[in-house]
Simulated assay, not measured.
Amino acid sequence: MATTQHYVWAGGHIILLISALRYILAWATFKTPSSWWYKASYVGALVSYSIVCQKSLGSPQPNAAWARRALADENVQYLILAFFWLTSKPVALSLLPYTIFSLFHALTFTRTTLMPQFLPPGPPATAGGTPTPHPLSKKLQVWVRSNYDSAMRVVAYTEIFILARVIVGAFMFRNSFLTPIIYAHFIRMRFFQSTFTRESIIAVTAKVDEYANGPDVPPVIKQGWATVQSLIGRWTGTTLNAPTNQAPPAAGAR
């Protein structure tokens, strides 16, 4: 049976999902979205992430071992990032990964917790066996499973695009110069922890490399790209001792 904490966790996802969709829709239609929806989205994220981080890590401990374990946890990383976005100048695109995560968590919560309370179970698969889930619940489960990998790839590419956005935004004074530094470190962590992120970065790098080494590209661009590749290689050269986990992070991260 779901606990109060579980309902609060799900409530955070639902708040995030509704608020983010409202903000992104206004932004995508060239309207001026209220920052209230943006802040509400990340407040919902903080609620959900805080709960799952507390459950997985326990109460904070004043020692280096606990801090290392916490910083290597992807839910903690998304929690810290959510707090950073909440306290920084709004970047609408930053909401998209959290929105996708919350969509999958909200759908799973609906299937496993809400639907059994309102929909009658199906007949047992075998005589005397346990009842099967309602057909609607089965369809929802199939949809989540079949679309999960594609959604995570969208998230990975979106996070790369967000990095490009905040780098350009820093030079255009649309966000602080601290933003791309912090977000680049986050992407570095994701590179070592997430297969989806790693594959996306490799794919994007290959595309840029193909363009930069084209026959009609000026030598200065080729040299600049080679320098960028060298810097990125040195920057990501240290392997992080963090577990790889491809299941959706329980708070709403990947």
Rank of each mutant, 00 (worst) to 15 (best):
1 M>F: 06
8 V>R: 05
10 A>I: 05
15 I>F: 04
16 L>P: 02
22 R>I: 14
27 W>R: 05
28 A>C: 13
33 P>A: 08
34 S>H: 09
35 S>L: 08
39 K>R: 15
43 V>H: 00
47 V>E: 04
54 Q>T: 02
60 P>S: 06
61 Q>A: 15
68 R>Y: 13
70 A>Y: 10
70 A>R: 06
71 L>M: 15
76 V>H: 01
84 F>G: 01
91 V>N: 10
97 P>C: 02
101 F>Q: 00
102 S>V: 06
105 H>V: 03
106 A>P: 01
112 T>K: 12
118 F>P: 02
118 F>T: 07
121 P>K: 08
123 P>M: 04
125 A>F: 12
127 A>M: 13
128 G>A: 01
132 T>W: 06
137 S>P: 08
138 K>I: 15
138 K>F: 10
143 W>A: 15
146 S>M: 04
151 A>C: 06
156 A>P: 11
157 Y>G: 05
159 E>F: 07
159 E>L: 14
162 I>S: 06
164 A>F: 15
169 G>H: 08
178 L>C: 01
178 L>N: 07
181 I>Y: 10
181 I>C: 06
185 H>M: 12
185 H>T: 03
185 H>G: 12
186 F>S: 02
188 R>C: 08
189 M>P: 00
194 S>P: 04
194 S>Q: 09
200 S>L: 04
200 S>Q: 11
203 A>M: 03
205 T>C: 09
207 K>G: 02
209 D>M: 06
219 P>H: 12
223 Q>D: 08
225 W>P: 09
230 S>F: 10
230 S>I: 01
233 G>D: 05
234 R>N: 10
238 T>Y: 13
239 T>K: 14
246 Q>K: 11
247 A>N: 14
254 R>S: 07
